[in-house]
Nucleic acid binder design. Sequence first.
DNA 1: CGTATTGTTGAGCGTAGTCAAAGTTAGTGG
DNA 2: CCACTAACTTTGACTACGCTCAACAATACG
Lengths: 254, 254
Amino acid sequence: LAEDTALESLVRRWECHVPFTEADRQAIRALPFVRRSVERDTYLVREGDDAQHCTLLLSGFAHRHKLIRNGARQIISIHIRGEFIDLQNSMLGVADHNVQTLCRSEIAQVPRAALRDLSTRHPEIGRAMWIDTLIDASIFREWVVNVGRRNSQSRIAHLLCELTLRMELAGLADAEGYDLPVTQEQLADATGLTSVHVNRVLRSLREEGLISLTTRSLRILNAQRLREVGDFNERYLHLAPPPVQLETGPTIRA
Amino acid sequence: LAEDTALESLVRRWECHVPFTEADRQAIRALPFVRRSVERDTYLVREGDDAQHCTLLLSGFAHRHKLIRNGARQIISIHIRGEFIDLQNSMLGVADHNVQTLCRSEIAQVPRAALRDLSTRHPEIGRAMWIDTLIDASIFREWVVNVGRRNSQSRIAHLLCELTLRMELAGLADAEGYDLPVTQEQLADATGLTSVHVNRVLRSLREEGLISLTTRSLRILNAQRLREVGDFNERYLHLAPPPVQLETGPTIRA
DNA sequence: CGTATTGTTGAGCGTAGTCAAAGTTAGTGG
DNA sequence: CCACTAACTTTGACTACGCTCAACAATACG
């Protein structure tokens, strides 16, 4: 029963980009997987691994990161429930970065061979998987810009805008905000700053009335201003083509 | 005649990752394209474009970049002869970044529809294209680390190591070095620094005997040390070796 | 309730940025 | 081929954003 719904998020997610037949949908639902609960800070993939399966986040949060020689860490992406966190490993051989949970999470591990097989036998699904990784790549590009050229305020604001929008689209955040199990040190590693400085930036964002962030519960108080500060333009997220949002009026409708 | 060789680099490049049949190779060679010579600084793609074709670099150099509100620019990748510079546009709708030549170059523009068609009718080619973009994504991740967590010396050294290795693999560089048509300002925009500081870092690398860089001709004098300084590990480039299909045995066989 | 982790604040510092000017190279047209 | 100009490189003096170090406070968690 629960097994049925585990993969349902994939169907919904991928169907945004590519038209599926009912056979496609069934093939996704028929994917073999192992469901697993993992503690916070669990490594799901380690750089150098020859990963034999890919991991779908059923609940919780995870992040990808790399370590450099001097021990510093750079977080490359943060993932929320419903996302595949290492789909590239279905096609690339050896993992080039680490993946770790940010909190207690539930995952579904899908054998690499099954994903390859699926993409071969259902070309449209293969295309959806490709597009999924292309959007990941677009997000990486935006992160290069974020850590390369924005000041500390903008970096944090941009990151919060992105996470919030993705959470909202996944139906995991509303006006009440949401739980963001991320320490200031992790925020620092995601933005190329230090935790001390992140602390000061968060304070200034709070003082300016843009956010409230207490005990890891984030609430955006002034989305418009936060977007301006973060120089945020959602184009790089390649949200589903024409349908949703802005020009089509309210989405809360039958 | 020359038309035949234009696409040959694609065959060679993609064949590193996926075993092709002769039919696959012929299909690639049969791709329609328009060959074009373009001046330096020509925009090949602009953010917001609904690109109808993808661009293969036949000669010259190009870079991808994004501009932020205050006018600053971040270069996201640098591309050399033989590389597809916007393959993701064959699948994604609207371009999320700019692509511009670094010098006078020759390009082949391949209609997006033809590439989609190719990937559908030749799944192995589709897979190779996917892998191509996955390696791009891996390089973006490394760039996030580079600009996010390395100091100025390491950033420059890392960038030079990457470019040199890719040039060597393409047979475009040897012990004599190679021509790198990149200004210090562009180097700065690629590493998240300023051109003034890049100038100083280059001087220090020269003084330490690691490189010689005069009138845009680069020569690596001490590759070992440069790699150390740049914290360079080529894993993220996912260079060919035992590509796909570990479990099905050798692919180079009748 | 006790301990480890995380968050907060201050003081001082350093890497890289800014501004400005001079020197060099490359590209253009006469 | 030279002269002129624009683009690029180099250098110096000064500045500032974000880092380091350190101590303490608050929180989470077993």
